[in-house]
Write a protein that binds this DNA or RNA. Sequence first.
DNA 1: TATCTAGTTCTCTTTTTGTTCTCTATTGTG
DNA 2: CACAATAGAGAACAAAAAGAGAACTAGATA
Lengths: 202, 202
Amino acid sequence: MTNKMKLTRRQQDIYDYLHNNAERFAHPPTYDELCQELGLSSRGSLHKHIQALIDAGLVEPMEGRQGIRLVEWTQADEGIPHLGTIAAGRPIQAIPQPEFLPVPDFLLRQHPCYALTVKGESMIEAGIMDGDLVVIEQRDTARNGEIVVALINNEEATLKRLLNNNDGSITLIPENNTMKAMTFEAEQVQIQGILVSLLRRY
Amino acid sequence: MTNKMKLTRRQQDIYDYLHNNAERFAHPPTYDELCQELGLSSRGSLHKHIQALIDAGLVEPMEGRQGIRLVEWTQADEGIPHLGTIAAGRPIQAIPQPEFLPVPDFLLRQHPCYALTVKGESMIEAGIMDGDLVVIEQRDTARNGEIVVALINNEEATLKRLLNNNDGSITLIPENNTMKAMTFEAEQVQIQGILVSLLRRY
DNA sequence: TATCTAGTTCTCTTTTTGTTCTCTATTGTG
DNA sequence: CACAATAGAGAACAAAAAGAGAACTAGATA
């Protein structure tokens, strides 16, 4: 449905404006407000452009209620934020101003995702190397055997394979036979996401 | 149509400019904008050059001939073809109708690329697992240490690390300590591309 | 009810942009 | 030298894009 129609110059401008100022409008803006912001004096002219954006699937009219509009966007169009570096035994080292990576649909999930750079070799036998970029789906639960981003004791973040033990404890397994699995109480471990895909540049 | 004639000096200039500054133009540039950038004062003159580039198939007019611009054709827009499966010791198993994968810029190179699915574990210690998708830059030469798609005796295709020996022979090294490196005469080995990036879904 | 507001539809004009044309200057070639 | 190929300037034109402004519609409101 993402009909990538080509926009005219002004249509792009207006879309960019809506996109960049989405937060500024508590309630979706009216045509008159937009006209003022964009320096137009005719609602009719604006309407023509908005209509084009609607046809292109970039914008949706507000449901039923008239008076207003709303913009929609997806991660596939926009890219996912690259939040920083994850190294076993350290907190995630955040990038001050996360940049957005364009990642194709087929490497994402429905739920929101973010990207991290892997530091270290703790998952090397799972084919995850130092410097790889991993795409993480934001979640606070995970199933057995999934590779997760886990926060331990609210201090250190790590990428490991998850094992939920019968007694309620949690074991985090590195995929590196020089390293040992570690077991924690459920309260000590907080799941921050699960691994959904991996990107590597040579 | 695709009149593959050689370009004049200025045509090449203009093509190079478009090529190098493609990123700078949020929307495809208008003729007036290009004139300014290129130091021309006549759209008519520009038009003659652009027309030559279109004839040469290097540039496409914006569809629908809207009051706008020309676009360079890049693989980032269209995606790269997924040609099939590469398994050590077999020819590449081609997909009848290759599908196109949208792959973000930063995982590509300037030169044409294609994607293959990796079958087998011969490169597992390089972090390349069974089922991974590799992006290959189409090339017929490679440097020492690069991971290449090599065709051996015009029969079997394989993904290995390349070693050019002093005596002119070529050694292909698997990254799997249960497998042995193999050495061939230069004539037996044909480079079909080099590894530029890797994608994996979980 | 009358009135106001905000989206829609319409006609019209202006501006922008690609195209086509002619004319001129420069350069290289036989 | 003549001649062709390349390069640019500038004018004129048609169509697309953008905008103005008025009239109309349907809800909301008083």
